[in-house]
Each structure stands twice: as C-alpha cells, then as structure tokens.
Simulated assay, not measured.
Amino acid sequence: MNAAYFQMFARYNQWANNHVIAACKTLEQVDLDAPREAFFPSITKTLNHLLVGDTLWLARLRGEIRHMALNEVPWPLFDDYKAARIAFDEDLIAYVDGLGDDDIADVVQYKNVAGKPFATPRNVILGHVFNHQTHHRGQVHSQLIGAGCPSLEIDMIYFARLQGYSQ
C-alpha cells in the first residue's frame, strides 16, 4: 500500500463525516441525545466515541500520549462536536498528506487505553482508523434513520465516483 491510498481514505472519511453532520443538523439536540439502538446508545454518544477514538489513534501515530475513555463524551453539544470533527478531519488529512510511501509501513509503538504496549505498522493503524469510522458511522446512519432522517449515500463508491476514481 502507498501513501496515496490512505490520502484517498482520509478525504473519503471527511466527505462521509460531512454528510453525517449535515443529517444531524436537521435534528434537535434532544433527538441526538435520545436513546437509540447501537453499541453506544445515542447519536451523540456514538459520534463522540468516533472522535475520541480518532483523537487517540492520531496521537499514537504522532508518538503522543492522550488519556481519554472510549465512552467519554467531551462534545455533548452538537455544535461543539461539529467544530471538533471538522477540525480533526482537516488535521487527519494534513497528517496523512505528510506521509511518504516509506512512512506507511513504519512500526508505531504505543499503549492502548489500558496501558498495554503494542507495536503495529502504520498502514494497519490507518486501515483500522478508517474501518472503525465506517463501522460506527453505519451505526449512526441507522440511528439517524430511526430519528426520521432519510438514508445517506455515504459508501466509498459514491465518493470515488465524485472524485473521478471510478467511472
């Protein structure tokens, strides 16, 4: 895998997150906080988990230490979450854009939230970050439908077609 592959995914991730943000903006805060079926029991909690996870992984990739619980809700208000998500996605794109092909396979040393040490290739971590986003974004999508929002077309292929990766 090369750096361009992950640069594409960073942009797809931002694009899909922007679609989720647009759908969430149609709801009231009470609807975002309402109990919903998913691993994290509300739209707010699921979105916060995603951004907490992303924050932790990017810190690890940079050799930084961050302490956050995976069920923490640092952005309980949607407007605060939205600002943090938009800024984070820009930061992630800048990080990935700064990687060369040689950097992608480097092994990253880090500790998980329980303090256990790991050594994982950067490409595996980046793959996990984007896969984790897709996994929980799918849960948010289901929660949004349950809140009365229309279904979102956020599959990778839609992004690829818009960007000219697919014809």
Rank of each mutant, 00 (worst) to 15 (best):
A59C: 08
G138D: 03
A3T: 07
I125V: 12
L144R: 01
Y95E: 00
K45R: 15
H128K: 03
I65K: 04
L61F: 06
F9L: 15
A147V: 05
N18T: 09
N131E: 14
I21N: 03
L32N: 10
M1C: 08
D102I: 04
Q109G: 07
A59Q: 07
N71D: 10
M68W: 14
D155F: 01
P121K: 06
A69F: 07
T55K: 05
M1S: 12
V20K: 05
R66N: 11
R137M: 12
W15I: 12
I65D: 15
G138V: 02
D31C: 03
A119Y: 01
A69R: 02
R66L: 12
V129M: 11
E153L: 06
D79G: 11
H132L: 03
F159M: 06
P41H: 10
W57M: 07
E90D: 13
F118N: 00
L61N: 03
Y12T: 07
L144D: 00
H141R: 07
C149N: 05
F9V: 09
D33S: 07
K82R: 15
H141W: 05
F39K: 03
S166A: 14
V140C: 06
V20D: 13
L99C: 14
D102W: 00
A10V: 04
V20Y: 11
Y81H: 09
A69E: 13
H128A: 04
D54Y: 11
S42C: 02
S142N: 12
K25F: 10
Y165H: 15
K116R: 12
A38D: 00
V20S: 09
D31I: 01
A22I: 07
V108D: 03
K45Q: 13
A10G: 08
C24R: 05
R85D: 14
V107D: 12
M68Y: 14
D91L: 13
A160I: 10
L58D: 11
I86L: 14
V73E: 15
D155K: 01
N112K: 00
V129H: 11
L32W: 06
V140Y: 00
R11W: 10
R36N: 03
L51D: 10
Y12N: 08
L99P: 14
D102L: 02
Q139P: 02
L56H: 06
A38P: 06
K111Q: 14
D103F: 02
Q143A: 13
L47V: 13
R122L: 08
K116L: 12
E90H: 14
W57L: 05
Y110D: 11
L152V: 11
R60F: 04
D54F: 10
D79F: 01
W15Q: 08
H19P: 01
L126E: 13
N71K: 10
I125D: 13
M1T: 08
I86Q: 15
Y81E: 02
L50K: 03
V113Y: 09
Q7Y: 04
Y81N: 03
V73K: 05
E90Q: 15
G98K: 04
I21C: 02
N18F: 09
G164D: 10
A119H: 01
M156E: 15
G53F: 14
G148I: 04
A160E: 15
S151H: 08
L61R: 00
I125S: 10
L92H: 09
L47Q: 01
V113W: 03
V73G: 11
F130Q: 11
A22H: 11
T26P: 00
S166H: 15
H135D: 13
L162V: 11
A34E: 06
Y110I: 09
P35W: 02
K45G: 04
